[in-house]
């Protein structure tokens, strides 16, 4: 398993696996219930992770210059 595949699995683990442990309203973060904030945080992290995957591929000559 390459590093980029492990990175690709991270959003699945964080978003789906994590929700079971954070299913509560408080503390509010950025005005949102904690469980909603958790999902939103992982949406943003997904974007950053895919940027990293692109960069890794770019070094292999396969990715897009961003």
């Amino acid at each position: 398993m390459k590093v980029k595949h492990a990175l690709g699995a991270l959003p699945f683990i964080g978003m789906l696996g994590g929700v079971a442990f954070v299913n509560r309203v408080e503390p509010y973060v950025l005005g949102m219930p904690f469980v909603l904030f958790w999902i939103v945080m992982w949406v943003v992290l997904t974007s950053l992770i895919m940027l990293a995957v692109n960069k890794l591929d770019q070094s292999d000559g396969k990715g897009e210059k961003l």
Partner: peptide, 20 residues
């Protein structure tokens, strides 16, 4: 209520899958 959050999750994760 909360079950609506699933939409945010599945769309983001579908894009991850799309990379490969």
């Amino acid at each position: 209520g909360a079950p609506a959050y699933y939409v945010l999750a599945y769309i983001s994760l579908a894009y991850v899958l799309s990379y490969w």
